[in-house]
Each structure stands twice: as structure tokens, then as C-alpha cells.
Simulated scan of single mutants.
Amino acid sequence: MQRTFIPFNQVKHQKAIIVDSLHPNGLVLSHWRGAPTPPELEGDTSADIVLNALRAANLNLNYEFVTTNHFDVDGFVGVWALLNPEMALTYESVLRQAALIGDFRELDLNKTGADHALKLVCWINAKEKELFYPPFGAGETEENEVIASLPKFHYFLREFARVLQQPETEQAVWGPEYRQVLQDYAQVQSSATVIKKYPAIGLVCVQTPEPVHYYALFSVTAGFDIVLAQYQGNRYELEYKYTTWVDIQSRPTLPRLLLAPLVTDLNNAETAAGLTWTAENITDTGPILRLAGNQLTRVERYANSTERPIYASGLAAHDFENKVVAYFNKAYTNILPAKNWTWEKIKTLNRNLFAQS
């Protein structure tokens, strides 16, 4: 059937398919924590779930309207696929990879459709910045994003099919970021970079000379949820991936833990004058532990590490890494990976775990 995209604030008056968000008035196809998505459609990204729904034989998709409460690559791909189901299934592998790259930043150029998907994501990124506002740039309230994102949907829903089918026509737009990603991807995959993995705590340590694009940095982090980036000159950032903000279904995960006790330990050991370690709360979409992190806006934190200053610590790389690993090893003792963590359970676990802190 022919479907129509409607603004999210209209869904309370009209049943719809709700993509990559939550609302009781319709069918929810979302990987958000606690989303009542039909279990037979499970997937890691919301676009995965939508594409699974399009392939499901006995699912009622007879909804005239489709909506979501924000604009990002994953949500957009899911909305677009519901409006263009036949073309979506033709380009299924590309769309799944685009959502994965856009949401989790896990680029793997060996995967079918990944190179094509990267061009599409870079095109969306470039046009979004040129014509509209960057991610998290609409203000702090959900209502701001609901309204401000509508022109983005109008533009990309109109133009996406053309670029999907003929990405070379927009090479001038996606080319600059695409080339940067490939260059940084090569750096991360080269002998200049040392990758250390700690599976028991879901941590990957990436030691590479200079900051790189997120799609390159996270290209070696599939299956892991915490990334410690270490750059020359004692520059470090520690980040919880978005994979622990949503309910992924391909594997169990460990719950997010408060970074505040680790911040305190690092500040007690830090010798760099005038700089302090900071980190966001566990409910942030992507908490980053970094020196002078509280000086950044959400827009700046969402941007690539190449676009923000990363200050030199007085702690040697091996000392910093040892502190991080020791913290998570101790904190995750007796906690097993699981699927479908709720925020209530995560917050309760943290209260109990750090009650004596």
C-alpha cells in the first residue's frame, strides 16, 4: 500500500508505523530500549527491523502513515524503506549497511554494500550540514527536534532514491568525507595502529598516531561496546558506543556503568596543569570521558574527534590504559552480558554497585 510520512506530533491523532522512536498509537519498529517491537522482527538497527518487517509474511503493515521523532541515518532509512518497499528490498544490503554505519559507526568495507552505503551516508552528512543543522543542533528538547527535522525529511525523502541508484551523480558532495574516511580507515588497518581487545569487559583499545574519522576508528570495534582511543602525545578519549544505548539483538551486552568513579581516580592521578577529566552520564547517547570534556556541546561531542581539541594528559599511555582496564574489570565482576537491559535495571545496578563510592 502507499504510505505517507507525517510529523511525529500528529501520531497521537493518527495511527502510524513508528520508526526508531516510541509511541503507543501504532506499530513500533524501533531498537530503542523497551520498544514493543514484535520479537520476530528483531535486529540491531531500526532499519534492520523495518527491512525484516517488509520481508515478514504474516505481519500487518496496513498503516497509511509512517513517522519518527528525529532525523538520523538509521531512522531515515527505516522511514524511506516503508515508503519505498520494493526499491528498499532491491537495495537491502546497502540500506542495512548505511544504518549500521550511521548509527553505530561500524564501517567494514569487506561487507556487501558497505562502500555504496558509505557514499550515501557521507552524502547525507554533507547535505545535512550544508542545508540544515548538524545532529543535536536543534536544541535540547525533543519537541525542537520533532519540528526542526521536518525540512530534512522533506528534502531527503525526495532526493534519496536518485542518489541510491546513481551515487556517482553526487560525488562532489560525498567525495570529501568519503576520501577522509578511506584514508583514516587505511591508517587504522595499518601497522601504524595497535589494536588491543579485552572481550571480558567489551573494551577495544585503539592506539593510532592521530585522531581519525569515527567510521575509521570504530571499524575495528564490532562486537565491543567501549572504545579507548589513544593518540600520540598522551591524548586519550574513552567512549561508550551507541550499541549500549539501544537493544541490539545480534549479541548480549554488558550494561553501561557510571564513569564518575573512574573520572575521580584519573583526576587524582592527573598532572596536566589546569585540566580535569569529565564524562557524561550513562543515559547520554554516547558518553565520552576526556580531558576538559565539559567544554564541548553535544554537537561537538557527536562530531568526529578530528573536529575537536584533544588535550595531552600527564599520564603515560600504559598507565592510563591500566587504570581503565582495572576499573571495568573490577566493576563488571559478577555481571554477565545479556540482551534487553532496561534503563531501570541499569540504574538500579549502578546504584547498588557504587553505593559505597
Results as ranks from 00 to 15, higher is better:
Asn281Ile: 06
His116Tyr: 07
Ser149Met: 06
Asp74Ile: 10
Asn58Met: 06
Asp319Asn: 14
Phe328Glu: 02
Tyr236Phe: 15
Ala148Glu: 07
Val94Gln: 05
Glu344Asn: 12
Ser357Val: 15
His23Ser: 12
Gln165Val: 09
Tyr178Cys: 10
Tyr332Cys: 01
Ser313Leu: 10
Tyr133Asn: 04
Leu107Met: 01
Ala279Gln: 01
Asp72Tyr: 03
Phe8Asp: 10
Lys12Trp: 04
Leu164Ser: 14
Gly113Gln: 08
Pro261Ala: 13
Glu321Arg: 08
Thr112Ser: 03
Thr342Ile: 07
His318Glu: 15
Gly202Cys: 09
Asn281Asp: 04
Thr193Ser: 15
Gly26Leu: 14
Leu83Ile: 11
Leu315Lys: 07
Asn52Ile: 08
Glu307Gln: 15
Phe136Asp: 03
Pro151Met: 08
Thr283Glu: 14
Ser357Leu: 12
His154Phe: 09
Asp247Thr: 14
Asn9Glu: 13
Glu128Asn: 11
Glu64Val: 07
Pro211Cys: 05
Thr333Val: 09
Gln189Val: 09
Leu266Tyr: 05
Val163Thr: 07
Ala279Cys: 14
Leu131Gln: 04
Val181His: 10
Phe153Thr: 06
Asn69Gly: 06
Asn304Met: 05
Arg308Val: 08
Gly102Trp: 12
Ile18Gln: 05
Trp245Arg: 01
Gln232Trp: 01
Asp319Ser: 12
Ala292Lys: 04
Tyr231Trp: 13
Lys345Asp: 14
Thr221Asn: 15
Gly43Asp: 07
Leu291Arg: 00
Val299Arg: 01
Glu270Pro: 03
Ala303Lys: 11
Trp341Gly: 15
Ala269Gln: 10
Leu203Asn: 07
Ser30Tyr: 10
Leu27Asn: 05
Phe320Thr: 09
Ala355Met: 09
Tyr155Cys: 06
Ala56Arg: 01
Ile335Leu: 02
Pro309Gly: 04
Gly233Lys: 06
Glu106Ile: 12
Asp225Pro: 00
Glu210Gly: 00
Gly137Cys: 07
Leu54Ser: 04
Lys345Gly: 10
Ile18Thr: 06
Ala303His: 09
Ala229His: 06
Val11Pro: 00
Tyr214Gly: 01
Gln183Lys: 14
Pro151Glu: 05
Ala200Val: 13
Arg290Ile: 00
Gly34Leu: 04
Tyr311Glu: 10
Pro151Asp: 05
Pro39Phe: 10
Lys330Gly: 05
Asp72Arg: 00
Phe224Ser: 08
Asn267Thr: 05
His116Val: 04
Glu130Leu: 11
Gln183Ser: 15
Phe71Glu: 07
Leu29Thr: 08
Leu228Ile: 09
Met87Ala: 11
Thr283Asn: 12
Tyr178Leu: 10
Arg298Thr: 13
Asp265Asn: 07
His23Thr: 02
Ser149Pro: 04
Ala114Ile: 08
Tyr214Val: 02
Val181Met: 02
Glu239Ser: 12
Phe218Ile: 00
Asn84Arg: 07
Tyr185Ile: 12
Met87Cys: 04
Gly34Trp: 01
Gly233Asp: 09
Pro85Arg: 04
Leu150Gly: 03
Leu257Asp: 02
Val227Pro: 00
Lys339Asp: 11
Pro287Ile: 01
Thr4Val: 15
Asn234Leu: 13
Arg55Glu: 15
Leu29Gly: 11
Thr67Ala: 07
Leu83Lys: 08
Asp44Ala: 06
Val121Asn: 08
Ala57Cys: 02
Gln97Ala: 09
Leu82Ile: 11
Asn125Cys: 14
Pro199Trp: 03
Gly139Gln: 08
Glu128Phe: 03
Asn62Pro: 00
Ile248Phe: 02
Glu210Val: 11
Ala172Ser: 12
Leu259Thr: 05
Arg235Phe: 04
